[in-house]
Structures are given as structure tokens and as C-alpha cells.
Simulated assay, not measured.
Amino acid sequence: MNIRFLETFVWLAKLKNFRLTAERLHTTQAAVSSRIATLEQDFGVRLFDRGAREVTLTTDGSKALVYAERMVKLMREMKDDMSDKQVYAGVIRIGVIESIVHSWFPDFLGRVHKMFPRLQIEIASDTTIHLREQFSKGNLDIVLQAEPVAGAHITNLNLCEFPMRWVGSPKLNIGSETLSLSDLATFPIISFARNSGPHAVIERLFSGSERGALHVNCIASVATMIRLVTDGFGVAAVPPAIIQRELNEEILHTLRVDVEFPALVMLACFRSDNENPLTETVARIAQETAADFALNWGQEIARLPSQAQ
């Protein structure tokens, strides 16, 4: 049943005049008359008695008006709810890697909460490998991570890029000289989780003569990595974005290395055919937050995707 026809019926019952109803609905008297005639045909009853100046409801029309008003009101409430983002409720499940957690994620959560105050957010912080697995199983609605997810109806939205730098503790007495991979190989290497993107880079960089002396420690927890490097256990390649406090307090410093470490690419991955209408909106909020972070901190900390070098 056409809701516009019911709305026409309700207004005609209130105004009791075809011309006034047409003006109220920004249509013609002929259109009003046609809609009422269609309703009467559908219901199999006469809704109005037509007079010279106005119309009045019949007994059947009075009965039908009660239901029509409910339906029009319900439709209006539905439209209001769909157009007002403040009323969005429910749950969205977000997976996120620690490198994002330790940088712009708190600001992102604040923005989501401000836009959707009634939305419940479930957060899973893990490695990209585990997040991709959980996302593929349908346990997560959106993942913020360092690698794209392949598959039909999946969107990978570029967020930003984190430059990677080798860092170490002043306790190592490395100094400010430029280091080679052979120099780094004399220290324990603290790496992101095995089979992660950064770990694969380390495997590739040290695949030559340095590999025999290499001692790599794969750690899934970024916080544990930072603690070990701070304590002088070894060196690590990490985004400066996640160790700003340690760098400012000079308990860690960046090392000059003659081989550049590729940047860590951040993406928001979500299903474009997902029944949850908020996934793309939330991903766009993540993109805006990451862009603001990059613009505020500069290219040594974070870069927009188009600024990748």
C-alpha cells in the first residue's frame, strides 16, 4: 500500500477539502481525488461523503482513519530515526592493530561516540594475521590493520602510512653513526609477529650474508616490543608514531641505517554488502582521523597515502 495515499487520506480527513489538501501536499486536486479513489477501491468501501464545499468521513472512513494515522506516524518515526544518526543503536565490532591503538585510535573512538552516542563498540586488538582471520569468519565488522583483505564485496580503504625507523636504547651506546645491516645484526632484532609484514621485510633485508648472525625475536605485543627495546635488549624497526613519549623522554632514539625500511600501510577493511549500514561510515571516520593525525604530526610520523615515498 502506498504510504503517500494514506497520508493524503489523513490530511483530507483533517482539512475536509480537496483544494486545501492538495496545497498542503504540494500536488493537484486531481491527484488527491485519484489517491482517495484508489484507496476506496483497495478497501472496497467508501471513505468520504462528498459535499459541495467539504467532505466528511463515512463510518468506514472513520474506522480506516485510526489505522491510517498509526501507519503514517510509524513511517514518519522510521524516517526520522533513519535520518538522525544520534538514534543509531546496536553493536559494531572493530578489530585494530596495536600500532593504531597507540597512535590515533583514541581520537577515532571519540569521534565515533560523538556521532553515534548510542552505538556500542566492541574492540579486538590483535595482529593483522589474527584480525584478518576473525574478519573472514564474520566475527568482526571492520578491521583497521596493515594489510588488505582479499575477497568479493570487501572494500580496503587507505588510511595513512607510518614511516618505520630502527630504534634502540641509549644503553646500547650505538651513537649517531650510520649503521649497516651487518651492524644491526650484532644486536638481537626485536620484530613484530612472525609472518607479519614488518617481519617479512626483516627476513628479506637480512637474507644475505647478515642472516647467519641474525637473532630475531618475534613478539606479537607492541607494548612488549617497546619495553624490551627500552630496556636495551635489542633493536627494532617500529613506527615513530607509537613511541613519541619514549623519544621525547630520550629513553629511545632513532638509528641511522643505510637501508630504508618500508612504511607500514594502514587500511580499513569492511564488507561493502554488509547488513550493518555503519561499517562504511565508521571506516570513513577512521580515514578522516588518520588524515588529521598525519597532517598534525608531519610526514616523519605519518603520511597521507598520496604522500607515500
Results as ranks from 00 to 15, higher is better:
A213E: 10
S207I: 04
I251L: 08
E280F: 00
F192S: 11
G61W: 02
A68C: 07
Q307A: 08
V87Y: 09
L295Y: 13
A294M: 02
L278V: 03
E40Y: 12
R194L: 13
L39W: 06
Q145G: 08
N17L: 06
H199E: 09
W11H: 12
D84V: 07
V96S: 04
Q287D: 02
L47V: 09
V10W: 04
Q120Y: 14
Q287Y: 06
F105A: 04
S221R: 03
A294E: 00
F5D: 12
V259P: 11
N156K: 04
P198K: 01
L255W: 01
T27P: 09
V66C: 08
P170G: 01
L205T: 00
Q134W: 09
T8P: 03
F270L: 01
A294Y: 00
E69V: 04
I242A: 10
P240G: 01
V257P: 03
A68E: 06
P188I: 00
L264C: 10
G232E: 02
K63L: 12
T178W: 05
A241D: 05
A124Y: 10
A37C: 09
Q307D: 11
L264T: 12
P277S: 05
V45Q: 05
T178R: 09
V91M: 15
E23F: 12
P277N: 02
D231K: 09
I36E: 02
N274I: 07
L157M: 05
D258S: 08
I226T: 04
I142N: 04
G138A: 08
E40N: 08
F48K: 03
R303D: 01
A213R: 12
T224K: 15
D231C: 11
I121R: 02
L74H: 13
E249F: 10
L205S: 00
